[in-house]
Amino acid sequence: MPEPIPVLPEVLAQIRALPPSSRPLIICDVDEVILHMIAHLEEYLQENGMRFLNHTYRLTGNIARHDSDAPLPGDQVKTHLIKFFDEVSPHQTMVPEADTMLSALSEQWDIVLLTNLPGTHNKPARETLLGGLGIPYPVLTNSGPKGGAVAALSGGRSHPVVFIDDSPTNHRSVQASLPSAVQIQFIADQRFLRSVEPEAHIDLLTGDWRETCRFIEAIL
Rank of each mutant, 00 (worst) to 15 (best):
P4S: 10
V7S: 02
V7Y: 02
E10H: 13
V11P: 04
V11G: 10
V11I: 12
I15L: 01
I15Y: 08
P19A: 11
P20N: 09
P20F: 11
S21A: 14
S21H: 11
S22E: 14
S22C: 07
E32A: 04
I34V: 15
H36Q: 13
L41S: 07
Q46I: 08
E47W: 08
E47M: 12
G49L: 04
L53K: 07
H55F: 13
T56L: 01
Y57I: 13
R58N: 11
N62H: 06
I63C: 05
R65H: 14
S68Q: 04
D69G: 04
D69I: 10
A70T: 15
L72E: 13
G74E: 06
G74Y: 03
D75T: 09
L81H: 05
I82V: 14
I82Q: 11
D86Y: 07
S89H: 12
P90E: 06
S103G: 13
I111H: 09
V112M: 06
V112G: 08
T115W: 06
L117S: 03
G119F: 04
H121M: 08
E127K: 07
G132V: 04
I135T: 05
G147Q: 07
L153T: 11
G156H: 11
H159E: 15
P168L: 07
H171T: 00
S173I: 08
S177G: 15
A181S: 11
A188I: 05
Q190G: 02
F192A: 08
S195N: 05
V196R: 08
I202T: 06
L205P: 00
T206L: 13
G207Y: 09
G207I: 14
D208M: 08
W209V: 05
R214T: 12
I219E: 02
